[in-house]
Design a protein around this nucleic acid. Structure first.
Length: 924
RNA sequence: GGGCAUUUAGCUCAGUUGGUUAGAGCGCUACACUCACAUUGUAGAGGUCAGAGGUUCAAGUCCUCUAAUGCCCACCA
């Protein structure tokens, strides 16, 4: 075990090696185990088209930390992995591939096209999994599910049929979000609104009753409407005004001639119209605007669709037929201008829906789609959060969730694409009835006709994702009891019988509800909310107890990282340059709970440097470890008098351990990471190892050396376990080197299977901490004085330390060798009483005087100024404190310990002040 | 229009329930390559905690208002 370690840590050489080792030894696998408490996270399944970006890196690092932490803590920890089939995104990718061959999906036909997608999936679909492995993700990979797996698809069908049976699925003609590029309907969540700089066009619609249809200057001859989408005027079937609007009262019910189309349309009155917007008169296009659709229904207007699904104008657009919607806009504006019908154009900021897959501007479009009635599903999901069964971290997302749920809209679930779960509905060509079925229907259940056609549409991808926390465990298949499960992982198919909650596999029963869901804020509506609804509906239980929402990864200017902006920092580049541990640690240490992360590449140096620090500390300890001595000593370790330095570092370790536990339990990952960083670097390395150095390097056997070896070994070994969730690779590498196992023993052992150190209160020694802190301050002060006095490093300096109290002096004396060495003193004397040594400079730490003896003359003026400044500062503080202590309110209301502390501080400051004044007075 | 977040050192950010002297990393200054580590060590400089008002014995922390920035939501023709 005294193998020579290299001077620098090289992550590349170790990371792949240990990942392979963990996988080969099934160290990520978890099974239903009644003897242990479960801990389970289901991964937010990345898209099959996905490529690891920083958002994934952060998301999955957090999950891996939780999983590894709980695994060490003895929970049966399962991280359920998988991939989402990502209907539209994947179809787009494959269509692009086809386009390169000059083909369209229609050229292949539905079946061939789907085959082609599967081929694509086989070839490229596991990219992101390989990348997650690089990151160190300890998922139980053999369990990985794909949302298009046969079993999973069955779950999707069951759910659809169950909702159908409850009457929660209906078909309707509505104005929905239509993406003209993807040529499919989208849900509201899939069409986020973005601000757009556009124009508001004021168009004159002539009254039919005017003398001629020519527009004259008289305002009664026409009505002016304002619109941002003039091309939709071709589909106008009314103009609406507010019934209270005096400007228009007299012409309500009159007929207008729709320009360019020459259709007669009525002026209607409806309170929905805002009198303050535009001219107070609004054109009504029931087929191309959700509001106008409502008006159209209410006032029984004609519905005129003027667009093809691809966004080109259709035959109803007359002369404009065939033009793209935005081309048509320009031409129409030209024509209106020519006819003197365009009153004016105003710049206007508007927001429009954009396709979340291809960013094309959404067209509100009338079409027949399938919807899920959401209100009944939302009810228990609202209750689950309101009653605290599910908790959001940070808490503020609760409100966002509830606000959305309480105003929930019906969910448009049909998509006009091919890649996805085809809607399990069969339409009878004879009796025109529709039936839902989990199995392929051969005959109509109503009229027994065999002329059945399955619905052409597929389901929204999220209609399968929302089942993730239970469908991944085999729901709705019947499984065996927990005890038999391990040996017989066979799932048998059963048809839905209407009692879904009872049909559980043992695994499902064991791991569901899962423990925590880790995701980004933009996914709350898409996924989190819907999973809660699905869990309540189909499992009669919540899907997870906690929801941890982390921030968005942005670049250093606060912009979202995206390919199009070219500001991407590729996690894989970081891994190959700095290592996965460095990536993980750096990401986590800058991620405050729920705050966005502003990232620049130099951040990762910190993680790399830290890994290197751990490496070198371990290297030093290993180089100076006597194996036999440590091995023997580990057994007879308890009850030894370890000495104050060892007691101190153990005390510090257990304090930091306690802190880490607390912070991880509260999802405050950065605080845990930073506490561990500070402890290891500044306490363990900077102080402890420096103090231990001569003892360890000196090969002579002694009780002190043995104790120091054991403590250094133990603290390092335990620290590795505690930091392992953050930095899994380097900790395994070093931990393996710390093992005493001989080559004969083939038992597989890993840091992953060790126990998380338990907090040991009796090891916490506040007195030892305070005593050593004083020594550290003395050393720091001497170093400081040396630099202030500009004494060359090689110059011998002598110090006199005065401290009252024999025990106190003896304690300082016991560490005098360390003080001399670390402060760079050639000699040190300890005295009972401070007696201004000739030609010296003195500093004060509490009641300890530290004087440095100088050969030449002391620069009195400089020293006087310095001491004067310090005296001034202390006097200010004392007077502030005395004012507080004179305050009756403070004495009455402040807690006793706060008052005591203040008093103590004043006493201490007063004493220091007195000593400083003495020193100043001696400077003559 | 509604909601949320942010504003603390030159930069990027921590700071849990209000309680001594407000912290870290990077950067900066000075010094040091003495055998764990220059991906290092030692020491240091640097902050009226966005502004105003309030509650309190006590405010970076709680309340109100203001300003700036960012995000989300909404039937913004």
């Amino acid at each position: 075990m005294i193998d020579e370690l290299s001077k620098q840590y090289h992550p590349k050489e170790t990371e792949d090696k240990w990942y392979k080792f963990w996988e080969e030894n099934n160290l990520f696998s978890a099974k239903a185990n009644p003897k242990k408490k479960p801990f389970c996270i289901v991964i937010p399944p990345p898209n099959v088209t996905g490529i690891l970006h920083m958002g994934h890196a952060l998301n999955n690092t957090i999950q891996d930390i939780l999983i590894r932490y709980q695994r060490l803590k003895g929970r049966e920890s399962l991280w359920m992995p998988g991939i989402d089939h990502a209907g539209i995104a994947t179809q787009n990718v494959v269509e692009k591939q086809l386009a390169k061959e000059g083909l369209k999906r229609q050229d292949l036909g539905r079946e061939k096209f789907i085959e082609r997608v599967w081929q694509w999936k086989e070839q490229y679909g596991s990219t992101i999994i390989k990348q997650l492995k690089k990151l160190g993700a300890s998922c139980d990979w053999p369990r990985a599910r794909f949302t298009m797996d046969e079993e999973y698809s069955q779950a999707v069908k069951e759910v659809f049929v169950a909702l159908w049976g409850k009457g929660l699925i209906y078909q309707d003609n509505k104005v929905i979000n239509w993406c003209p590029r993807c040529q499919t309907a989208l849900s509201d969540e899939e069409a986020p609104h973005r601000e757009l700089q556009g124009n508001l066009y004021y168009i004159k619609y002539p009254l039919k009753e005017s003398p001629s249809h020519q527009v004259t200057k008289s305002p009664v001859e026409y009505i002016i409407v304002a619109t941002t989408r003039p091309e939709t005027m071709l589909g106008d079937t009314a103009v609406a005004v507010n019934p209270k609007d005096k400007r228009y009262k007299h012409i309500v019910g009159k007929t207008l001639i729709l320009p360019l189309v020459n259709r007669e349309i009525k002026i209607i009155a409806d309170s929905l119209v805002d009198t303050k917007f535009g001219t107070g008169a609004v054109k009504v296009t029931p087929s191309h605007d959700p509001n106008d659709y409502l008006l159209g229904k209410k006032h029984k207007l004609e519905f005129v669709n003027v667009m093809h699904p691809d966004g080109r104008m259709n035959e109803n657009a007359g002369d404009y037929s065939g033009l793209d919607r935005f081309e048509a806009r320009e031409v129409i504006l030209e024509d209106l201008k020519e006819k003197n019908l365009l009153e004016k154009t105003e710049a206007h900021q508007l927001s429009a829906g954009h396709c979340y897959r291809c960013h094309t501007i959404i067209e509100p479009y009338l079409s027949r789609q399938w919807f899920v009635k959401m209100a009944p599903l939302a009810k228990p999901a609202i209750a689950a959060v309101k009653t605290g069964k599910i908790k959001f971290y940070p808490k503020r997302w609760t409100k966002v969730y509830l606000n959305w749920m309480e105003n929930i809209q019906d969910w448009c679930i049909s998509r006009q694409i091919w890649w996805g779960h085809r809607i399990p509905l069969w339409h009878c060509q004879d009796c025109q009835k529709t039936a839902a079925s989990v199995d392929d229907l051969k005959e109509c259940p109503v009229c027994k006709s065999s002329h059945l056609k399955q619905d052409q549409d597929v389901l929204d991808t999220w209609f399968s994702s929302w089942l993730w926390p239970f469908a991944t465990f085999g729901w709705p298949f019947v499984g065996e009891p927990v005890s038999q499960l391990a040996s017989e992982p066979v799932n048998r198919l059963k048809t839905l019988t209407g009692k879904p909650a009872n049909r559980q596999t043992g695994e499902l029963k064991y791991f569901y509800p899962t423990s925590v869901l880790v995701t980004a804020p933009e996914i709350i509506f898409f996924w989190v909310a819907r999973m809660i609804m699905a869990g309540e509906e189909f499992m009669r239980d919540i899907p997870f107890r906690d929801v941890y929402i982390h921030g968005t990864v942005r670049d250093i200017e606060g912009k979202k990282m995206s390919k199009s902006l070219g500001n991407i920092i590729d996690p894989l580049d970081i891994i190959s340059e700095y290592g996965a541990d460095a990536l993980r640690f750096s990401l986590i240490s800058i991620t405050a709970q729920g705050q966005d992360v502003f990232l620049s590449e130099d951040r990762f140096q910190q993680g790399r440097n830290f890994a290197n620090k751990i490496w070198n500390a371990a290297r030093f300890i290993l180089m100076n470890l006597d194996k036999a001595e440590v091995q023997a000593g580990l057994e007879s370790f308890k009850g030894q008098d370890l000495g104050i330095v060892n007691r101190w570092i153990l005390s510090r370790f257990y304090s930091v351990l306690k802190e880490t536990d607390k912070m991880l339990g509260a999802y405050r990952f950065n605080e845990a990471a930073n506490a561990l960083y500070g402890f290891f670097w500044h306490e363990f390395c900077d102080w402890y190892l420096e103090l231990a150095k001569p003892i360890l390097v000196n090969r002579e056997q002694s009780a002190g050396r043995r104790n120091t070896q054991i403590v250094a070994y133990k603290v390092l070994e335990k620290f590795l376990r505690v930091i392992h969730p953050f930095m899994p690779f380097i900790t395994e590498e070093i931990w393996q080197k710390l093992q005493f196992t001989t080559s004969q023993s083939h038992r597989v052992t890993s840091i992953m299977t060790q126990a998380w150190p338990s907090a040991q209160e009796e090891m916490m020694d506040k007195a030892a901490e305070a005593k050593l802190n004083l020594i550290f301050q003395v050393i720091t002060t001497i170093r400081n004085m040396r630099q202030e006095l500009e004494l060359a490093p090689e110059k011998d300096i002598e110090a006199v330390i005065a401290a009252s109290g024999k025990a106190h002096r003896d304690f300082i004396d016991s560490l005098s060798l360390d003080i001399k060495r670390l402060a760079g003193l050639s000699a040190m004397r300890i005295e009972e009483k401070y007696q201004h040594p000739r030609s010296s400079i003195t500093s004060i730490i509490k009641d300890v005087h530290i004087s440095i003896l100088l050969e030449g003359a002391v620069d009195l003026e400089k020293e006087k100024i310095k001491i004067g400044e310090r005296i001034e500062k202390i006097e200010l503080e004392i007077s502030a404190k005395q004012r507080t202590l004179a305050n009756k309110g403070f004495l009455q209301k402040a807690p006793a310990e706060v008052i005591a502390k203040e008093k103590e501080r004043v006493v201490e400051l007063t004493a220091t002040l007195k000593r400083l004044k003495e020193i100043r007075d001696e400077l003559h």
